[in-house]
Amino acid sequence: MKKLVIIYALVLFGFANAQSIKYGVTGSFHKGSIAGIHGVSKGDFGGNVGVFADFSLVPNDIYDSAWLYFTPQLEVYTIGEKGDWNEDKVDYQKYSNVYVAVPLYIKYYLKNHGYKGDIYFMAGPKLEFLVSEKTDEGNAVKEAEMSGYNPAKFGLGQKINKFSYGLSVKVGAKVSDKLEAFIRFDRGFAKIYPDYTQNTSYNRFLGIGVSYYLGETN
């Protein structure tokens, strides 16, 4: 986690001379899952809370006229799922993880008659570090062994990676001078369970959220 904080601080320092800097808080609600593992599984609901800064990459001579920004974000988010290794729909295995993450977005506002519009798109890489892991597999490992199966085949008893990375995208709209609403999709590319060989396991989620601007520097 310290590495992510250092990365975020260096990014902020590197863009300190941007045309203008807007900053605020953001949060979202999503349904996510750890794809590619735990047999038949159901995603759980989770959320994100964080802070962000918009560094303008084009002139911002007129009030809030910049249409292109670099937007780093520092956030905490939860993700998890319920597994069902033998598909009996009775005893579920539960997985819940908490990450500190740094998405690094490019933010582009669509133009309306040559001026900055209210609709925007954001996309960029995301780095994340596991800070909390909660796994409850009950007697699933013993049940699989007693049934003549290797528990590892169903993703049971696996060790999780502490670091991962992926891609985050948003589509949003300006609600007021200080408030924006968005839809967000994140897809991981790193293996969450490195020792699991049946499939590539990764984090993913789809959610909705808002961003609120606290201030601006010029």
Rank of each mutant, 00 (worst) to 15 (best):
K3N: 14
I7P: 02
L12I: 13
F13Y: 06
F13I: 05
N17C: 11
Q19A: 13
S20L: 05
S20F: 06
K22Q: 14
G24T: 04
G27V: 13
F29V: 13
K31P: 04
I34T: 07
G36F: 11
I37N: 12
V40I: 08
K42F: 05
G43K: 08
N48G: 09
N48C: 08
V51K: 07
A53M: 11
D54I: 01
D54P: 13
L57D: 09
V58N: 01
D61C: 07
I62R: 12
W67K: 04
L68I: 00
Q73K: 13
Q73H: 12
Q73A: 02
V76K: 12
Y77I: 04
D84Y: 11
E87Y: 03
V90C: 08
Q93R: 15
Y95K: 08
V100M: 10
L104Y: 06
Y105I: 09
I106F: 13
G114T: 09
Y115S: 15
D118A: 14
I119Q: 08
Y120K: 08
A123H: 04
G124M: 04
P125E: 01
K126H: 03
E128K: 14
S132V: 11
D136Y: 11
D136P: 09
G138L: 01
N139H: 01
V141D: 06
A144E: 03
A144Q: 02
N150D: 13
K153P: 08
G155K: 05
L156W: 00
K159L: 08
N161C: 03
F163L: 06
F163T: 04
G166A: 02
L167Q: 05
V169F: 02
V171D: 03
I183Y: 06
R184K: 13
D186C: 00
R187Y: 06
R187C: 03
A190L: 00
K191M: 05
D195P: 01
N203G: 03
R204Q: 15
L206I: 10
S211L: 02
Y213R: 09
G215V: 04
E216S: 11
N218D: 15
N218Q: 08
